[in-house]
Computed example of a mutant assay.
Amino acid sequence: MTTSGPVLVIGEALIDIVEKEGGSVEHVGGSPANVALGLGRLGVEVSLLTQFGADLRGEAIEAHLRDSAVRVLVERAAATSTARARIRRDGSAEYDFDIAWGGFGDVALPPASVVHTGSIAAFLEPGASDVVRLIRAAGAAEVTFDPNIRPDLVGARGEVEARFHEIAQLSTVVKLSDEDAEWLFPGKAIGDVLDAVLADGARLAAVTMGAEGAVLATPSGRVRVDPVRVEAVDTIGAGDTFMASLIASVCESGSADLGRDRVAQIGRDAVRAAAVTVSRAGANLPWARELAA
């Protein structure tokens, strides 16, 4: 799949330290960095504006992203952030974070038709306010957003909810996990959550539900997408893979209206891509050639 762009992703890049029985292994991670990686592997022209240290882990991040055709724009941090992931028996992950997310100075943004952000970068100050400023400054036709809420990191609930809606109101595409939906809209049904996201102004909203598939919605209707059954190794990067596929589909569709058939295809492509990532260790997102095979 070769798609148009360019896309600018703004957000954290870090090292996932994945613990399983018998030891640990380090992988490049961070939700926005994973999304950028996935886009590069799908053939989308993509840049990542991020922060990491001038250290060995930072060098590993930069090399890994560039190997997947991502242009890396770095605001240097004192050290590279980490997330320690403990893999449960069902393949899901529990995280402990050592994160720093600072402000951005004057940044020369590359041209972009799509800007994406989410996760820690969208909520953790002092950098989060600058992320919103940069989204506004970019003036992209499409803004995509995945809150990927980390409750222990993002601050008081009221502040997080306000920031979510602030970015959602700038966004044309918003994706949440079912865990995000429950945290942001406690007690609400998935349909009501999608309605709330669309009311903020998105033209496409999605909620992923792990092994139960996903639901996608536009102002004119919604589509349920069945899961692709695979043997789960771990779920790290699955939601980011879904998001990268959504963005690639938006690039491919351009400004065209998203009818039911097109939305269903977008959802199937995203679920299938995420299933590939779940079937292997770490945030190892699929290449276009793998999805075409």
Rank of each mutant, 00 (worst) to 15 (best):
V174F: 03
V174C: 15
K175W: 02
S177E: 06
E179M: 10
A181E: 04
E182S: 05
L184C: 05
F185H: 09
P186W: 15
P186F: 10
G187T: 12
K188Q: 11
K188V: 03
A189E: 13
A189W: 01
G191Q: 09
V193I: 08
L198G: 10
L198A: 07
A199V: 02
R203S: 01
L204R: 01
T208Y: 12
M209S: 07
M209V: 00
G210E: 12
A211L: 12
A211R: 14
A211Q: 14
V215Y: 15
A217D: 03
A217G: 08
T218Y: 03
P219F: 14
P219S: 03
S220T: 13
R224Q: 05
D226Y: 00
P227L: 07
R229K: 14
E231S: 05
D234N: 09
D234L: 04
T235S: 14
I236G: 07
G237M: 10
D240K: 12
F242R: 01
M243Y: 10
M243F: 08
I247C: 01
I247V: 13
I247K: 01
V250Y: 00
C251L: 10
C251F: 12
E252S: 11
S253K: 06
S253M: 08
S253T: 14
G259I: 05
R262G: 11
R262Q: 13
V263L: 10
V263K: 01
Q265N: 09
Q265G: 07
R268W: 14
V276R: 06
T277S: 00
V278T: 15
V278N: 00
R280N: 12
R280H: 09
R280G: 13
N284L: 09
N284F: 06
L285T: 04
A288T: 15
R289V: 04
E290D: 15
E290V: 08
